[in-house]
Structures are given as structure tokens and as C-alpha cells.
């Protein structure tokens, strides 16, 4: 049964890049895409995915706030933060809050895969 993933980023190209990586790897289905944190929280509650990839800097609600709300709703939620190079303060906050892992943009396909697989316990 493929693992169910939601990608969250205000840039459609990033969502597409992550989706392409997961599709090529096989065993993962991107069941929804969100462009801000508010949508991410709503979709998480509706669809209960296996994992989210979450951008940090987004309009309406940023990734940190969305992470907080999702973890309040489901403390076992698996969230991999996706961050550009200098969002380290936000990143540290995310890890302290309970984010599972992080990926730094610009990213390589194998980094995305190892973060997702590790988070879901799929690494052999």
C-alpha cells in the first residue's frame, strides 16, 4: 500500500519537484498539495496522511505555526520541514517542536528520499 504524502509549499514548482522524486522512487502517493500552512492544517485533519513535507516561509500561515497546530492535533504526525538556507532559527524551533527532519533548498533528490524514508521507517 503506497504511503500517503501531502506536500506544502507556496511555490508550485517545489511541490512538483518533491512529487516527481517520490513518484520516481515508487511506493509513495502525493494525495494533496497545499500552498500555505492554513490549508496544510485543514488537509491534515481531513486526510490524515502518513507524512507532510512543509515549507517554512509561506503567506497566511507559515510552516512553524502549521507544524504546531498539526502536532497539537496529532502528536505522532510526521513532518519534514523544507527550508531555504538561512532559516536556521525557524528550523531549530521546528525541530524542538517535534518536526521529524529537514531538507535544505536547493535540494537533491536523494536527500528528499532519505528524509522521507527515514521519517517513515522505510530505510533498509
Amino acid at each position: 500500500m503506497p504511503k500517503r504524502i501531502i506536500t506544502v509549499d507556496d511555490a508550485p514548482i517545489i511541490r512538483l519537484m518533491i512529487k516527481d522524486v517520490l513518484t520516481e522512487c515508487g511506493g509513495y502517493d502525493v494525495i494533496a498539495e497545499c500552498s500555505n500552512g492554513r490549508e496544510a492544517v485543514e488537509k491534515y485533519k481531513e486526510l490524515k496522511p502518513d507524512l507532510l513535507t512543509m515549507d517554512i516561509v509561506m503567506p497566511e500561515m507559515d510552516g512553524i505555526q502549521a507544524l504546531e497546530e498539526i502536532l497539537k492535533y496529532d502528536p505522532a504526525a510526521k513532518v519534514v520541514m523544507v527550508t531555504a538556507i538561512d532559516q536556521r532559527d525557524a528550523l531549530m524551533k521546528a525541530i524542538r517542536l517535534g518536526a521529524t527532519d529537514y531538507i535544505v533548498k536547493p535540494f537533491e533528490a536523494d536527500r528528499v528520499m532519505s528524509a522521507v524514508q527515514k521519517a517513515l521507517g522505510d530505510l533498509k
Binding site: A11, I13, I14, V57, A84, I85, D86, Q87, K105, P106
Partner: peptide, 10 residues
């Protein structure tokens, strides 16, 4: 948009 984000973050 994303290149702008990445460069601005750099």
C-alpha cells in the same frame, strides 16, 4: 519565485 526565495535567503 523560488529562485528569488533561495537567493534572498542566501
Amino acid at each position: 519565485q523560488e529562485l528569488g526565495n533561495i537567493l534572498a535567503s542566501a
